[in-house]
Amino acid sequence: MKEKIHSFLETDILERYLLGDTSTEESLRAERYIAMYPEVHKTYVELQENLELYAKMHALKTPENLKGQILAKIRAEKRAGNKFFRLAIAASFIAFLFAGATYFFWNQNQDLQEKNSMVSNQIKDLRADMRVQLEDLRNQYIVLNNPNTRRLQVRGNQRAEELKAVAYVNPVKKLSYINVSNLPQLPEEQCYQMWAEVNGELVSLGIINEFDNAEQLLALPYADNAVSYITIEPKGGKMTPSVDKIVANIKY
């Protein structure tokens, strides 16, 4: 059932349904999933709230007292000079204000179009981020629950004896993750950094102590007989590993 829900959330039907851009069949499917599955309903509500927030952030206000200012000016002009002159001034002023208001609203419309385009791009980026996160969650679920997954206990060497981690490797799905559950404390000017061997080169996977959640799974590039390393590096990390400061090897 979870696979079915995740498969649905990986599509963009929910976002397009919210924007009124789905076919009749897609709309019925979206409404059915929203009604039946709390996870889908929660995602739908979050999307609604995001759109409402964008709409409130970029809503345009009508200039205050514009009508009152025009009428007040006309009345003032009507009290000065002869009737024809007064009407001529009023007509000219109205024409001037009309031209100004036209330009104002045209300019505001251009600004609104730009903001709408920006919001649309932000929604696309949000949708792309959601897809990436959902894909990563799906892969984590597979790795943690698939019977073909191998669990490898990782221990630190004498430099970091208290380091503990578990690597999860699934050769069928070609997925691998690592969960670092314990890291010995380092001086403030140092950090732990993860590396993976990719095409014969060591590539940085990030600074491990930035992942504060003990349940965090860090994706590892999958390869047959692959090797990953954890090293001690200066605070902020490095572009190349300090091979003399390796504290753990992960072979999978």
Score class of each variant (00 low, 15 high):
2 K>Y: 13
2 K>T: 10
2 K>L: 12
3 E>K: 05
4 K>T: 01
4 K>F: 08
11 T>M: 00
14 L>P: 07
14 L>S: 09
20 G>F: 06
26 E>F: 11
31 E>P: 01
33 Y>N: 01
34 I>E: 04
34 I>W: 00
38 P>F: 07
40 V>H: 07
41 H>F: 08
42 K>G: 11
42 K>D: 10
46 E>M: 00
47 L>M: 04
49 E>Y: 09
55 A>Q: 05
55 A>T: 11
58 H>W: 10
60 L>R: 12
63 P>I: 12
74 I>N: 12
76 A>L: 15
76 A>N: 15
77 E>M: 03
77 E>S: 02
77 E>N: 02
78 K>P: 12
82 N>M: 03
82 N>I: 05
85 F>E: 06
87 L>A: 02
88 A>T: 05
91 A>E: 14
91 A>G: 14
92 S>L: 15
95 A>C: 05
95 A>P: 08
96 F>M: 15
96 F>K: 08
101 A>Y: 00
105 F>W: 03
105 F>N: 03
107 N>E: 10
108 Q>Y: 04
118 M>N: 07
119 V>G: 03
121 N>E: 04
129 D>H: 04
135 E>Q: 08
137 L>S: 06
137 L>D: 00
141 Y>T: 14
145 N>C: 07
152 L>F: 02
153 Q>R: 10
155 R>N: 02
157 N>F: 11
160 A>P: 14
161 E>P: 13
167 A>F: 06
169 V>T: 05
169 V>R: 10
171 P>K: 04
173 K>E: 08
173 K>S: 10
177 Y>V: 02
180 V>L: 04
180 V>K: 13
182 N>G: 13
183 L>K: 11
186 L>E: 05
188 E>K: 15
190 Q>N: 15
191 C>A: 11
192 Y>I: 12
192 Y>A: 11
193 Q>I: 07
195 W>K: 14
195 W>M: 01
195 W>F: 13
199 N>C: 06
201 E>W: 10
202 L>D: 02
203 V>S: 10
205 L>E: 04
207 I>R: 13
207 I>M: 00
210 E>K: 00
210 E>G: 08
213 N>D: 06
214 A>D: 05
215 E>G: 00
218 L>S: 00
223 A>K: 03
225 N>E: 12
226 A>L: 02
229 Y>V: 04
234 P>C: 13
235 K>W: 06
242 S>N: 15
243 V>Y: 15
249 N>V: 14
250 I>H: 08
